[in-house]
């Protein structure tokens, strides 16, 4: 929801980043305020995941210009774990498998780390078990998820649910969901979207990265941005997603404004 005068959570200016010497992000500007849901759409390869990973601090990318302000912090000065502890969350497009590490153990360590950061009590294994089971109901997940190794042998849909479960546990200030809809059938999509909607509120913000309109039927964005070749080339309201759905991306060129443009 767009709230007048709500505080800025994320402010990205002129962000440029490269990997192995190839520039992928070529000057991104984006402002996200508390309560808002932003969608970033764009064709495969346009740089959406790169942007998400650069925000989270992946060490493979080199930031070559611009700034990222996250609440009162200069994000570029923080290692990824401190960004996470500060309340930045990334639901991965391709969640990583960690053989041998039980999901429950991983979730609890992540949860307790973030709790400690917030000056709150840690949960012991039994307390955590009760707590996580409640959250799992929200996403209609089977209890045996907890005992399996992190993401190992999970189906695509299970992996995505596991990401949103972590979002539910960690209660981030800013969540970036990278293609959370891909690999989900329509029922799973509804469950996940419903989960996300229960988590979002006026005190946090969400960036949905997707290249389908489908997800946006269930999680309604306040802003839609179009990414092309490492830049945000157009910004509009939720109607823009529908327009992209029918017209594709070809009609957009860097300097064009959408029919019903809203400036972010």
């Amino acid at each position: 929801m767009i709230i007048a005068n709500s505080p800025t959570i994320l402010s990205v200016q002129g962000l440029r980043a490269s990997i192995n010497g190839t520039e992928i992000l070529k000057g991104i500007d984006l402002t996200v305020r508390s309560g808002e849901i932003h969608a970033i759409m764009g064709l495969n390869g346009s740089g959406k995941s790169t942007f998400a990973k650069v925000l989270a601090g992946h060490s493979a990318y080199e930031v070559t210009g611009g700034s990222i302000q996250f609440e009162d912090k200069n994000l570029l000065e923080l290692p990824p774990e401190e960004r996470a502890r500060a309340g930045l969350f990334l639901a991965f497009q391709y969640p990583i498998e960690i053989p041998g590490v039980a999901n429950t153990q991983f979730l609890r360590l992540a949860y307790n780390t973030v709790q400690t950061q917030r000056g709150k009590e840690e949960l012991d294994p039994l307390e955590f078990d009760d707590f996580v089971r409640e959250k799992m109901k929200l996403l209609e997940m089977k209890p045996d998820f907890l005992d399996r190794s992190v993401n190992e042998g999970f189906s695509g849909g299970e992996k995505k649910r596991n990401e949103i479960l972590q979002m539910a546990l960690l209660e981030p200030r800013l969540s970036i969901l990278d293609e959370t809809d891909s690999g989900l059938d329509i029922d799973a999509l509804k469950i996940v979207a419903n989960g996300v909607n229960r988590i979002t509120n006026k005190d946090n913000a969400t960036i949905l990265v997707t290249h389908y309109q489908r997800l946006l039927d269930y999680i309604v964005p306040d802003f839609v941005h179009v990414m092309q070749a490492g830049r945000i080339v157009m910004t509009g309201g939720k109607e823009l997603a529908l327009e992209l759905e029918t017209r594709g991306y070809d009609w957009i060129t860097a300097n064009k404004q959408p029919a019903a443009g809203v400036s972010a």
Binding site: K53, A56, G57, H58, S59, P79, P80, E81, R83, A84, R85, F89, L90, F92, P95, I96, I98, P99, G100, V101, A102, Q105, F106, L109, A110, T113, V114, Q117, S149, Q166, L170
Partner: peptide, 21 residues
């Protein structure tokens, strides 16, 4: 990176992976 994105530093991550292994 996955661990660190969940707030867990490299030291703890490796320890957890190794102990799991």
């Amino acid at each position: 990176f996955y661990f660190s994105q969940r707030g867990i530093d490299a030291e703890e991550a490796v320890s957890m992976i190794i102990n799991g292994f």
